[in-house]
Amino acid sequence: MCEVGGIGLPGDKIVDKETDGRIVLGPGLRKETEHVLMTKPGKLCFKDPNIYWVDSHHKRYIPVRGENVLGVVTNKSGDTFKVDIGGSEQASLSYLAFEGATKRNRPDVKIGDQVFCKLLVASKHTEPEVVCIDSSGKSNGLGVIRDGGMTITTPCNHIRKILSPDCVLLKTLGNSLPYEIAIGMNGKIWIKGRTTKETIALTNAIACAEYMNNEQISLMCRKLVNSLSGF
């Protein structure tokens, strides 16, 4: 038996809170006849009104439709690019899926370039497909990332933690060190500070924040800024 907020193992039954019996199951949960069982070890989370999921240390990315990911172009063939997004299979990216691209005006993408893109198709049995435009044809921040900066890889659960509104990491860092950032749900973060040294400091700060709570994060940020400014 596993309650909300507790740590469970695969096979544990979950205890339903006072909902009307209709619940939504997220990753790590499965319905078996009349019980709901956990299929991976981790912390059982709950969100109002009726969503349950399991959160755990996770390095392999499982593509989900609509998520923003950071990939590397590995191959060019005909009218599609192959993009490695860290999943079990490479995603395909059409050359028309860029802002302002037409059949005559091809986007300038080379092998080894990094693209920040959105997953359009992600299902169990087909190849994932990514695009660099939104439904209205605008880039909206997506596209090839070219002007410097560094990419780091962190576990997927860390990404979710950084992006959650409760986490103060990005705000506290940004108070004293301006930076540009692109966060992919596949565990890749591209970041660019003012100088090389600042970028390195930022990448290390993000990487080491995985097991910290908000107080520790703000303390770490303060220390980092002090050491960067030479105190």
Partner: peptide
Amino acid sequence: DIPFSNCERDF
């Protein structure tokens, strides 16, 4: 191999 992007290399 896990691909290595140009931007990481340059950096």
